[in-house]
């Protein structure tokens, strides 16, 4: 009897033990689900800093499976991306494993774009070139990213190679592909202005180098300011002669302004060339980033 009793007891405790384990697993599963829902909520609020902190807390509380860990790294990468913390974002995306093929591939696209954005072109190209997928849209997206990367490097010939593979059947991509081709045409027709010609022009007629660069206001100002000192120096020379203090002062000022104007024309051509490149790069970045965001946000 006692023996039976003890068996009964032990069975009971086994059941209750199992139940507790079950409850604790259920709590954990439910909890993880809730935590993900809350994360999404933080994301809609735009609270990426809070969300990142919260993700670390989840990692500490629950033993996550490998697949869950992959999605956590993926989400972290995206949040750092939203906060424009490129290094941390790349770091997190790199940790996304291959268990979930889709996450892995999208993480690579994000990394490739961010490498391009931080102007590590070689690393970006390697990332894109090693990309493999069975999904034709993703392949088309990577081809588009490679084309854009070639434009960032100003490899116009390479761009046309990729652009030949552009397809119109993906409506998410087709508009951006058209825009990128527009940028290509713009770069192709862009005539670089020569700093030497600008300097030479300014040496002949002060200010004309800036006019050549398309800057009407500064060009006129250059002519007027140099002219003002030239006329005053002329006045000093006419009235007081070559050795007068007046002629020496204004003559010196005139020379300084004349030389500075030549130098200024050279610099202004370089600056506007840089500004042009910067504007084009910004347009390329935006067109690279938008389809990724549209597809995988």
């Amino acid at each position: 009897m006692d023996g039976l009793k003890s068996i009964g007891m032990s069975m009971k405790s086994q059941i209750s033990c199992g139940l507790f384990l079950l409850i604790s697993f259920w709590v954990q599963g439910q909890k993880f689900h809730d935590q993900v829902r809350f994360l999404e909520h933080l994301e809609t609020l735009g609270e990426y800093k809070e969300a990142l902190y919260y993700i670390d807390q989840i990692g500490k509380q629950i033993n996550l499976s490998a697949i869950e860990q992959d999605s956590i790294f993926f989400i972290k990468g995206r949040y750092h991306y939203e906060l424009k913390e490129i290094e941390k974002s790349i770091d997190a995306f790199d940790k996304v494993g291959m268990r979930n093929q889709q996450l892995f591939e999208v993480a690579q696209v994000y990394t490739g774009f961010q490498l391009s954005y931080s102007r590590r072109f070689d690393a970006a190209r390697r990332k894109f070139e090693s990309f493999q997928s069975s999904d034709s849209l993703r392949l088309a997206l990577v081809n588009y990213q490679m084309a854009s990367l070639s434009l960032l490097e100003r490899g116009l010939g390479r761009f046309s190679l990729y652009a030949d593979r552009f397809e119109d059947k993906y409506y998410v991509l087709s508009d951006y592909q058209k825009d990128m081709k527009g940028i290509y045409e713009e770069l192709k027709s862009h005539k670089r202005k020569s700093p030497f010609v600008a300097g030479l022009l300014s040496a002949i007629v002060p200010g004309s180098g800036k006019l050549y660069n398309g800057q009407i206001g500064p060009g006129v100002m250059g002519l007027v300011s140099t002219g003002i000192f030239g006329l005053q120096a002329f006045e000093g020379y006419r009235k007081d002669g070559l050795k007068s203090a007046r002629f020496i002062i204004f003559g010196g000022l005139f020379t300084a302004f004349y030389v500075a104007n030549i130098w200024g024309s050279v610099v202004s051509v370089r600056v506007s060339e840089q500004r042009y490149n910067h504007t084009v790069d910004e347009a390329i970045y935006i067109n690279m980033h938008l389809p990724i965001r549209l597809l995988y946000r």
């Binding site: 405790s13 086994q14 033990c17 507790f20 384990l21 409850i23 709590v27 954990q28 509380q61």
Partner: peptide, 19 residues
């Protein structure tokens, strides 16, 4: 066995306590 049960209860209690 009883002890094991108690450990289980304790563990899940900890878990809930943490929350």
């Amino acid at each position: 066995m009883k002890r094991f049960t108690l450990i289980c209860i304790y563990l899940s209690g900890c878990f809930i306590g943490k929350a």
